[in-house]
């Protein structure tokens, strides 16, 4: 069985780091600053798209929380990415309504087309694939969200067309 390994130790972007540290500094005013760990990790993921090891080190230092504890939290919640996501994040809804309307086939199409499994990134780094439970668009089932955009009433054929649009855009 493989467990997640530490990701690449590239020095984190200075400007983003300054923003993150400012956010941490605000939480230090609170009576229980430690309780903001999850909020801080959320902020870090917003900034970097995932949780790079050097960023977790910085969080540990700034909050006085041992890295092992941060690692425990970061690996516990599926929300946190420990590897860099693709340029476009595809969330496929696997909720009841979407599933009944064929989300399983859409997922299979995505896996075949992108040659990745759920939780992975394509070789060219363009897409990553993650499951979602309900996106609140059951009327359009089955739906997929790519970044912030919802694509509904999908068929396998339509799904491939959408992917191709993104690919074309990326080539420009």
């Amino acid at each position: 069985m493989a467990t997640t390994q530490a990701n690449d130790a590239v020095a984190p972007d200075e400007q983003k780091l300054a923003q993150l540290k400012e956010f941490i500094a605000q939480t230090r005013q609170d009576e229980h600053p430690d309780s903001f760990l999850i909020a801080v990790l959320h902020r870090a993921q917003e900034l970097y798209g995932y949780l790079p090891v050097p960023v977790m080190d910085e969080v540990a230092e700034a909050m006085g929380i041992p890295t092992a504890h941060i690692w425990g939290v970061a690996t516990f919640y599926h929300y946190f990415n420990l590897t860099p996501p693709g340029q476009h994040v595809i969330s496929i809804c696997l909720g009841t309504a979407c599933y009944v309307r064929g989300a399983g086939q859409i997922l299979q199409t995505l896996k075949d087309e992108l040659k990745i499994d759920v939780g992975q990134v394509t070789e060219d780094g363009l897409f990553s694939l993650q499951p979602a439970r309900c996106l609140g668009a059951c009327g359009l089932a089955p739906v997929v969200m790519i970044d912030d955009k919802i694509h509904g009433d999908l068929t396998p054929k339509k799904m491939v067309q959408i992917l191709n649009q993104y690919r074309k855009q990326a080539k420009k």
């Binding site: 530490a6 041992p66 092992a68 504890h69 690692w71 425990g72 516990f76």
Partner: peptide, 20 residues
């Protein structure tokens, strides 16, 4: 604080930070 219980449920493993 070297060790933590990382991941969850059946996949939980005791390990050092970042699975180092």
């Amino acid at each position: 604080h070297c060790l933590t219980q990382a991941h969850r449920g059946f996949n939980t493993v005791v390990m050092p930070a970042y699975n180092l």
